[in-house]
Amino acid sequence: MIDKKLVENVARLARLELSDNEKTKIQRDLSAILDYVTLLNEVEVSDVKPFYENTALFNVTRIDDIAIDSELTAQKIIEQFPREDNSYLKVKAIL
């Protein structure tokens, strides 16, 4: 079911660079795991609703306001940027 092409396609979707060795291993592991999960085919679910939430909460909202310590937190978050220019997050050009 899982061939190398499928592994490469999923890796591209997941934005994961994999070595050839890793591809082979993941192909083998995913095949074994997917074989195991076909167990679920035994269960009749045509009338069953998919599971959504455990706590029966619905549309939890809050006021869109700024926390008092946000400037300090912002500074700490900026300090984590791998590449920064004058408090701006620097990324490679997209085009």
Binding site: R15, P82, V91, K92, I94
Partner: peptide
């Protein structure tokens, strides 16, 4: 991009990968 390990790369897609 935002935090954590970031590898040098030629373009944005390669940074992710």
């Amino acid at each position: 991009i935002k935090y954590g390990m970031s590898c040098e790369a030629n373009d944005l897609a390669e940074v992710y990968l």
